[in-house]
Amino acid sequence: MLSVRDLRVSFCTEQGMVQAIDGVSFDVAEGEILGVVGESGSGKTVSLLAVMGLITDPNAVIEGSIKYQGRELVGLSAKDMRKLRGREIAMIFQDPMTALTPVYTIGWQIAEQIRAHEKISAKAAEQRAIDLLQEVNIPNPAEAIHLYPHQLSGGMRQRAVIAMALSCNPSLLVADEPTTALDVTVQAQILDLVRKLQKNYKSAVVFITHDMGVIAEIADRVMVMYAGRIAERGSKRELFSEPQHPYTQALLDSIPPLEGKRPHRLKSIPGAPPALLHRSTGCAFAPRCAKRFDACVNMPILTANGHDAACFKVNPI
C-alpha cells in the first residue's frame, strides 16, 4: 500500500548539506503494523514526516519515491497532498500536551477535521465526534466534546488525538512515539487501544518508537534505523529471536531480563550516534560496534531476502 524507495532527505545548513535520511526503502502492507525503532536523530520521525508531506522547512530537499496506493507523493502539489492528509493518512504525535490547539474544545477540533474532508453538517460532524470519543473509551463523550484540552489528563488527550486521527477512517495511521510522554499504565491502555482500533478500522499502522518493549507488544514487522539508514528489518519474531545486526543485538541486550539473576549493571551501547554533518563513508555504527573488522570502512548494503541487515558480518562482499 505504501512503498518508499530510496528516500533521501537533506537540509541545507550554514555548514553545508546535512543528510538526515540516506536512501531508505520500505513497504507497508494493508492492515499491518510496522514498528520503526531507533535512537533520537536516527531519522525515524523525519522519514515519516516526509511521507506525510509535513516537512515545511524551506531548506529541506526530498528525493526518492514515495508511492501511496500507486500514487507518487514526492512532488505532489500542496493542495492534493492536503486532501490525502487527514483523510487517507493520519498522524498521532508524541506529546499530547501540546498537540491540540489550547483555545478550542476537542469536539470542535475533531469536527473541524471531518468537515475539512467531507461535506456534512455541523450537527452530524458533532455526532461523529461523540461516537469517536466513545470508541477511544473517553467517559461521557457527549459532555467530553465540550471540554478544552487543558481540562483533560495526558492519557485522555492522547485518546482525543487518536480519535481525531481516526475521524476520517484513514487507511494508514502514522504514530510518532504516541506513548513516550505517558506513564506506564496509560501507555499500556493506549497500546491496547491502538491495536483494537487497528483491527476494527483495518488501517495499516506505522508505529515509531525508541522502546523495544513497545515494539514487542504491538508490531508485526520491525525496521531498525541508525543514522538515517536502515540497519535491520524483518518480522518481529525473526528480529527478536535472531537479531543479525550488531546494533539490534546491542539494543536487545540492553533490555533488563525478566528471569534469572539480576545483572549488576544493564548493558549499554558505548559512544553516541554520529553527528549528521560529518558522516564517514563506512558503516555508521562501526565506531561503536564490538564486532567491527576491516571491511567496516566500506558502506554495507542491506540484503533483500525478507529478514535483512546492513552488516558485513551478515552480507560479506
Binding site: 487527514g86 498537540a99 489550547p102 474532508h117
Partner: peptide, 26 residues
C-alpha cells in the same frame, strides 16, 4: 512552530485556515 500547528497540518487543513483559526487566535 507550535506542535498544534503541525497537528492542524496533519489534519489536512489549508494554510490560510491554520494561520487564521489556529495561530492567530492564540
Amino acid at each position: 512552530q507550535e506542535d498544534y500547528v503541525r497537528t492542524a497540518r496533519a489534519k489536512g487543513l489549508s494554510e490560510t485556515r491554520i494561520l487564521l483559526r489556529h495561530a492567530l487566535r492564540t
